[in-house]
């Protein structure tokens, strides 16, 4: 009998710890499928963050290292400089990447470090129980913005793809979402494109994935997916922000 569908080899059999309705699971699967389909799973080294995905090392079926909070791009840099022919990716949340790890993010990007960053933006600190993230929307209520994020007081959310797209070292930057089937399909294509850019040694690639956190947003999973359409995407428009994969960033 022909197999028409099976679980990707890119994921282990370990049950994930993510909350019901969380979209981390979908993103994990997309990443794992891309690793497998591009034939790099056996050559891949992944870097797990601190945040909800802290135990990603248990889920991705490849060599993995756990980085200190925000330092995943620096850890990935160390790996890639030692093993330039291995496939190296980080998987980071918004607090990890856009708050405590901003310097590591910006500088690995501007160096054109040949790694791929999967950036999961759900506008909140999930693991610690729902505090304001650098990407929390204006007016959004969190545990530490109980009256809604006041931009005059707490500042404005960071648009990571827009910011990084100004840097010469970035080969590919795209923002996608995983709140409906068409978006999920586009997300997978984007991840694949970013991975291919690394395989072709084109430079730094980042895919920002708009993700849902129903638990900490205080919504049902369905409401959360709709909230992405109504609130997140207007502030964080989807699309390609930089594509230098034709020539690569280090081409002379």
């Amino acid at each position: 009998m022909a197999i028409v569908f099976q679980k990707t080899k890119g994921l282990t059999d370990k049950e994930t710890h993510y909350c019901p309705g969380c979209t981390h699971g979908i993103i994990h699967r997309l990443v794992a499928e891309c690793l497998e389909e591009l034939g790099v799973l056996d050559n891949a080294i992944g870097v797990a963050p601190v945040g909800c995905a802290v135990m990603a090392y248990d889920y991705f079926n490849c060599d993995m290292v756990e980085a200190p909070h925000g330092r995943a791009p620096a850890v990935a840099t160390g790996i890639k400089r030692s093993l330039p022919d291995n496939f190296v990716f980080t998987y980071q949340g918004d607090g990890d990447l856009a708050a405590i790890g901003t310097a590591e993010t910006v500088h690995s990007a501007t160096r054109g470090e040949n790694i791929t960053v999967i950036f999961v933006n759900n506008a909140i600190y999930g693991m610690t129980g729902g505090q304001m993230a650098p990407t929390t929307l204006p007016g959004q209520v969190t545990q530490t913005t109980p009256y809604g994020r006041d931009v005059n007081y707490s500042g404005f959310p960071v648009r990571v793809c827009e910011m990084l797209s100004t840097l010469s070292g970035v080969a590919y930057a795209e923002r996608v979402a995983v709140n409906n089937v068409p978006n999920i399909r586009k997300a997978k294509a984007a991840i694949k494109k970013a991975f291919q850019a690394q395989i072709d040694k084109k430079g730094f690639s980042i895919i920002e994935v708009i993700s849902a956190c129903p638990t900490n947003w205080g919504m049902t999973p369905v409401e959360a997916l709709k909230w992405i359409d109504d609130n997140m995407i207007p502030y964080y428009p989807l699309g390609v922000y930089k594509d230098a994969t034709e020539k690569g960033v280090h081409a002379e």
């Binding site: 290292v65 200190p68 330092r71 620096a74 850890v75 400089r81 590591e104």
Partner: peptide, 21 residues
């Protein structure tokens, strides 16, 4: 490799990554 990191923090974490290989 000689790499000038963006900070001491980044440098030691590059060491972590490199040492892990």
């Amino acid at each position: 490799t000689y790499l000038q990191a963006e900070s001491e923090i980044a440098a030691i974490n590059m060491v972590l990554g490199c040492a892990s290989t």
